[in-house]
């Protein structure tokens, strides 16, 4: 098993290397010139050209690529072309709002979705199941920004229970953090609850089909008890998986949510960087989010081998 884990960890390296290559190629094929946006709207072509030269953008692509890789190996993501700040510092500054809100929405989703999914599995094929499934499908059929606008309109603009926008760190007081984070987290949660509830239902149904559960049934153990004691425990790993892989979905979701709610997180950082062709920031961000995704999946794979006795390598 240890051998498998080592092998899995080593497999991360080529994947991340390919991500780096893809990201670099996609960006440098993108039309757009950061020098033009730095110089501003009324700059002349000459001014832009001289700026481009001094920013090192006239170097051949492969030279720029190897410079970047060289920096990466030292843990340095480079320097923002626009603000001149280091990308490491930018990300360190902006990642906490995103992580905190993502974490809050994961907690909220699991708290809502697992009971819902369990209910659906228990009432499988009956009315309760249909209702839960319909709600959860609806959850990821509505675009996130629509959900966000409706929440702002109802809870902030009309009822005035919560602030419209902004972010407070938990260190500034948990109450303030929650007041600002609850609407964005709810927006993200809508789609996430749907995904998790469906997965919970599906894996519970799978487990319930297994022989040992049938045996328990046959021994006269009550439905609900079987479901909660045996089913949920054994369905934990697939549920964990969806929580993990759904993280990628969250990272996509924050791009929208952070601009609707004005949260200074990495989602907005990325979109701003794309719009300004701030290459080092975009590269760093995509590498980071991909890295998180790969890491989470690695941990889940390892958790499988540790927790699920049926999987052996």
């Amino acid at each position: 098993m240890l051998g498998y884990i080592v092998k899995r960890i080593l497999a991360v390296i080529p994947v991340m290397a390919i991500v780096a290559l893809i990201v670099f190629l996609i960006l440098r094929l993108t039309p757009g010139d950061p020098a033009a946006i730095i110089a501003g709207d009324t700059a002349t072509p000459d001014q832009i050209a001289s700026l481009r030269e001094s920013m090192g953008l006239n170097e051949p692509i492969y030279v720029q690529f190897f410079q970047w890789i060289g920096q990466l190996l030292h843990g340095d993501l480079g320097t923002s072309l626009l603000s001149g700040t280091s990308v490491n510092a930018l990300i360190a500054d902006r990642i906490w709002p995103t992580l905190n809100i993502a974490l809050l929405s994961i907690v909220m989703s699991v708290a809502i979705a697992v009971p819902l999914g369990t209910l659906a599995a228990w009432r499988h094929g009956r009315f309760g199941d249909h209702v839960v499934m319909a709600i959860s499908v609806a959850g990821f059929s509505v675009p996130a920004f629509v959900v966000g606008y409706v929440l702002i309109k109802v809870f902030a603009a009309d009822l005035r229970w919560l602030p419209v926008q902004g972010y407070r760190a938990p260190s500034q007081g948990m109450g303030e953090f929650l007041r600002h984070a609850i609407l964005p987290a709810m927006t993200l949660t809508a789609a996430y609850v749907a995904l998790t509830a469906r997965m919970t239902r599906a894996s519970l149904l799978n487990v319930l089909g297994e022989d040992y559960i049938r045996t328990a049934h046959a021994k006269g153990v009550k439905d609900v008890t079987v479901l909660l004691r045996h089913g949920l425990r054994n369905a934990a790993v697939p549920i964990l998986t969806v929580v993990g892989t759904g993280f990628a979905m969250l990272l996509s979701g924050v791009v929208v949510v952070e601009s609707v709610f004005n949260i200074p997180g990495i989602g907005r950082l990325t979109i701003d960087a794309v719009m300004a062709r701030d290459y080092p920031v975009i590269q760093g961000m995509i590498l980071l989010t991909s890295g998180i995704y790969v890491l989470v999946n690695l941990l889940i794979d390892i958790a499988y081998t540790v927790f699920d006795p049926r999987i052996r390598y």
């Binding site: 603009a157 602030p163 926008q165 609707v260 004005n262």
Partner: peptide, 18 residues
């Protein structure tokens, strides 16, 4: 100076006194 990418968010924030 704060940047708000969404003009309606800014409007609501002004009316809310934020």
């Amino acid at each position: 100076w704060v940047t708000m990418p969404d003009s309606q968010t800014a409007m609501s924030a002004l009316m809310n006194g934020e």
